[in-house]
Amino acid sequence: MRDLVAAFGGELPGCDTPGLLGWLDAFSDEHWNFRGRLGGAERDRVRVELPPRLAAAGLAAAAALGLAGSGEPAHREYTHLLILGGLARSCLQRADHAARLAGALRVGGIAALGSLRPLSAEERALPGLGRCRTEADALAAGVRAAFGGRAVPVLVAPPGDPAAHRANTADTYEFWAAGAHPGPGDRILVVTSPIYVPFQHCDAIRILGLRYRCGIDTVGFDPRLAHPPQPGGAAAADRCLQEIRSAIRAARALLAAVG
């Protein structure tokens, strides 16, 4: 992080952790909040060409901070496996990876967590999604294809903020937990895309770990094995920098919840 900040002309301050995260939040808002500059556009709409030096710094930081590649689950047995929703392609990829994990691990309940975000025309053009209209529809199509005859519920969470147009990751965790009632001793495995692991893991600890005292592991699929394949630019430097910012903000929220 120190090297990344330096590449963008900054220097980390010498302060405590809350102060550092606050500083990083402001710095990342200025330099890496590409979605904000587009009025909160969906992640697949972000396209920012960076100078080669800055792009290289962003990719190096993403690899060092855990936003690239996949990770193996830390345990062989989980009480719950949660498949997170997102862009339509990600819904299919995460469901596919979750099914492979479920075949290799001992897993209790499985659930997919999504929202009613409308799909774009590009998302509906993906094979098998022509009749899908929302993220939850795409997630349902993904789990049907990946799990075959095993019924996997798709939970559609309402937004926690009445002014928001759709649920965010934290909202979906809260909605699932209200019905599943996880507890101490439970282990939860969250499946997402590699680039979102740090921020969605922080949110899972804040919403599920702290409140319900359960263990959390969060893993991303292997981009080399993704089905359907990853499109060009899915892990480009601009996307990585945007999600480093997401991780900073999620870590800041987690620290506030702890303290």
Rank of each mutant, 00 (worst) to 15 (best):
M1R: 08
D3N: 10
L4P: 06
A7T: 07
A7G: 01
F8K: 07
G9F: 09
T17I: 14
L20Y: 08
L20Q: 12
D25W: 04
N33Y: 02
F34N: 11
R37E: 15
G40A: 15
A41F: 02
V46Y: 08
V46I: 11
R47E: 14
R47Y: 11
P52N: 08
R53S: 12
A61L: 09
A61R: 09
A62V: 10
A62G: 13
G69L: 01
S70L: 00
H75P: 00
R76I: 04
R76F: 01
T79D: 09
L81H: 04
L82G: 00
G85C: 06
G86M: 08
L87H: 06
A88P: 00
A88K: 05
A95D: 02
D96A: 15
A102C: 12
A104V: 00
V107T: 06
V107K: 09
G108S: 11
I110H: 02
G114K: 13
S115G: 12
E123H: 03
E123A: 11
E123G: 01
R124N: 07
R124W: 11
A125P: 02
G128S: 04
R131P: 01
A136T: 11
A140F: 05
A145I: 10
A145K: 11
A146K: 03
V152W: 00
V154L: 00
L155K: 05
L155R: 13
V156Y: 01
P158C: 04
P158Y: 01
A164H: 03
H165G: 05
A167W: 08
N168W: 02
N168Q: 13
Y173K: 06
E174A: 14
W176R: 03
G183M: 11
P184T: 03
G185K: 06
G185P: 02
I188E: 02
I188L: 15
V190W: 13
V190A: 08
S193R: 05
Y196A: 15
V197D: 00
P198G: 07
P198S: 10
F199C: 14
C202A: 15
C202G: 13
A204Y: 10
L208M: 10
L210N: 07
Y212T: 07
R213H: 12
G215E: 12
D222P: 01
H227E: 11
P229L: 09
P229W: 03
P229M: 05
P231W: 00
G232F: 04
G232A: 15
A236N: 11
A236Q: 05
Q242R: 10
I244N: 00
R245P: 05
I248P: 07
A250E: 10
A251H: 13
A253H: 04
L254Y: 13
A257P: 05
